[in-house]
């Protein structure tokens, strides 16, 4: 593991990747992350997600009785397929889940070749 990776180490968020007729979808669980604290970058064929959650108790004077979750720095990278049209990737953050839509590139759609 390189030094750079270790320095950036955060939590790897749980992710679903699935294909539908219209293209690929990636769903990333990012509870407590606000859209302004989330960065999604595409660099060449690398898609990187990083975000930090800003969950806070309703009031700091409250007595903690039981704690099972807290704040995290989430980080994850994916290598995009050549099938994906990188220009048309869409991202929506809703109810603490990042939904990425990666449409298939037009040129990559299956095509029958006529035999003459």
């Amino acid at each position: 593991m390189s030094e750079v990776t270790r320095k950036n180490a955060g939590v790897v968020p749980a992710t679903d990747i699935f294909e539908m007729k219209d293209g690929f979808h990636i769903m990333v669980d990012l509870p407590g992350v606000k859209s302004e604290d989330l960065v999604v970058d595409i660099e060449e064929s690398e898609l990187s997600i990083s975000g930090s959650s800003s969950y806070a108790p309703a009031d700091n004077n409250l007595r903690k009785m039981h704690t099972e979750f807290g704040n995290n720095v989430y980080q994850r990278r994916f290598t995009l397929s050549e099938l994906v049209d990188k220009e048309k990737v869409e991202a929506v953050l809703r109810d603490g889940v990042l939904q990425l839509y990666l449409p298939k590139a037009e040129a990559m759609k299956p095509r029958r070749i006529e035999i003459s």
């Binding site: 749980a14 992710t15 679903d16 990747i17 699935f18 294909e19 539908m20 979808h25 769903m27 669980d29």
Partner: peptide, 10 residues
């Protein structure tokens, strides 16, 4: 969601 899953961690 309905689809062909490559990864299912959630």
């Amino acid at each position: 969601m309905e689809g062909r899953y490559f990864r299912q961690e959630r």
